[in-house]
Structures are given as structure tokens and as C-alpha cells.
Amino acid sequence: MSMKEQYGQQKDSYHSKIMAKSIAIFVVCVILTLICLVPIYILIVNSTHAHMDLAQNPSRFFFGKSLGANIKTLMNDLPADAGKAAKRVAQQYSSAFSLGRGYLNSLIIAGFSTLLTVFFSAMTAYGLTVYDFKLSGAAYTFIIGVMMIPVQVSSAGFVRFMYSLHLINSFIPLIVPAIAAPAVIFFMVSYMKSSFPLEIVEASRIDGCGEFRTFITIAIPMMKPAIAVQAIFAFVSNWNNYYTQNMILKNADYATVPIMVSKVLAFDKNIDNGVNYLCITLSIIPIVVVYFILSKFIIAGVALGGVKE
């Protein structure tokens, strides 16, 4: 066997090995993708079927025609000749899962919390990196130290304290604490250390710019990438926060999306499976759509390692 033939063969077998490996990996990835997407697909499909159809055969893989009817049930907008049972179902679902109010509540909480989190975290990070003061090291150590304390640990005292301040059924205990977000500060400090030149602060001082104005007009625009990533994560985690919201918001008028879902889940009579699925779909869709629009930023943000709830 000549040398050329021998090496040629090895090269071929090397290539075929890599091809085989690539194909195997591709297949595994496709399976995992299906595991991630199929539950969502089935959920959406099922929300387009009527309860009667689902009772007949719950194993549905294709879209049905009852989406409109399910939405009408959920909005308690039944035709006048609807039966008593149907009216009871519609009444139950529409009172637990109120589309407009629930989304508005979630949006208010998540929106304001996000604004407060990113603004005050940027401000704290700026204070810690730009100024050299006696307690700055201690303050930063404290922030890293408390970063990992779980909410559950202080929640018993938190509820009791909020109760004594008459802040149960109020958005304040859900929004104002967002000012203090140690993990976000940690992320922003590391971002500033790597990509915020302190000379710019000196320069603006020489130009007579006040300290706070320097922060607002120079630092914030320069920190935009970090702020954007953290804003996305803060919004998602506040939107999804069932634990604290359920603890504070006892009144149905203040229910947020996760609370409404948990209420629908707790029904034990007058259940309409189609509407059940519709409620869950409605709670998932907005966040999934926003995710796919912003996915590039989100993946990059996770890769930076700043976020793990």
C-alpha cells in the first residue's frame, strides 16, 4: 500500500467519523428541541378545542375550531340562550382570570420594578466604582455577601411587617424593594470596571458638570448595554414572581397573571378543559413572543454569567 493511499484512507475514515458524530448530535438536539416545544404546541392546540371535544378524545394534535368560543367563555360573553351550566363555567373562569386587569397589574408591577432596579442598581454601581470612599470596599463586600440570600428566608417577617404597615394588597411591597437588587449591582459593577473609563468623569468635572448630572447624562448612556440586559431579566423575573405576589396580593382585584393561573389550577368543579388550556396559553404567549424577539440579547446576557435566580 502506498503512503498516499494509506493516509487517504485514514483521512476518509476521520471525515466519516466526524460526519457520523455531527449527525448523532444533530438528532439529539432535534429531540431536545421537540421536548421543549411540543408541550407548548399541544397547549396551544388544546386551547382551540371545546370541552366536549376534549372529553371525547383528549389526545388532540391538530388545531380545532373552538378558540373563539373559549375566548367568549373566558370573557363571560355568552349568547343569551346559553345553558345554566355554561353560564356557571363562564362566571367562574372570568372572575378568576380577568384578562385586562391581571395583565395590567402584572405590567405595572414588572414595569415599575424593572425601572427602579436598573436605575438604582446603575446608580449604586456608579457610586461604588467612580468614588473612592472609606466604606466602598465594605459596601461592595456586603452586596456580594447578601446576593445569595433567598427571599423565602425573610418572607415570614416580611409579610408580618407589611401587615403591620397596612401594605397587604398593595403594590408597594412588590415594587419599592426592587430598588435593592444586589445581583444586578454586582453585574453592573463588573461591567463598569471593564468598560467605563473613569477619565470621562474627570473630564466632565473639569467642564463643570455636577456629579449627579454626569451620572444621568454620561454614565447611563454609556451603560446602556448592561442596562438593557438587566432590564430584560428584571422584567421577566418580576413578571414570573409568583411567590411574593401571592404572599402580598390577597384581593382578587390585585391578582397578577401567575396568581390567576394558580387560581384556575385550583378549580375542582365546573372545569372546562379547553378554557383551562386557553388561560395557560394566554399567560405564556406574551412572554414567549417577547423572548423570541429579544432572544439574542438574552442568550448573550446569560452567557455573561450574571444571572441565575
Binding site: L37, V257, P258, L265, N276
Partner: peptide, 18 residues
């Protein structure tokens, strides 16, 4: 593969229960 992580955990529980 990252997508499930951003879905509300309450909704995920409801989805799997259903």
C-alpha cells in the same frame, strides 16, 4: 433550549398538570 427558563413557573406547573 433556553426558552422554558423564561416561562412563568406557575404556568409551567399548570401546563404539566393539564
Amino acid at each position: 433550549m433556553y426558552m422554558p427558563n423564561i416561562i412563568t413557573a406557575a404556568s409551567v406547573a399548570a401546563l404539566y398538570v393539564n
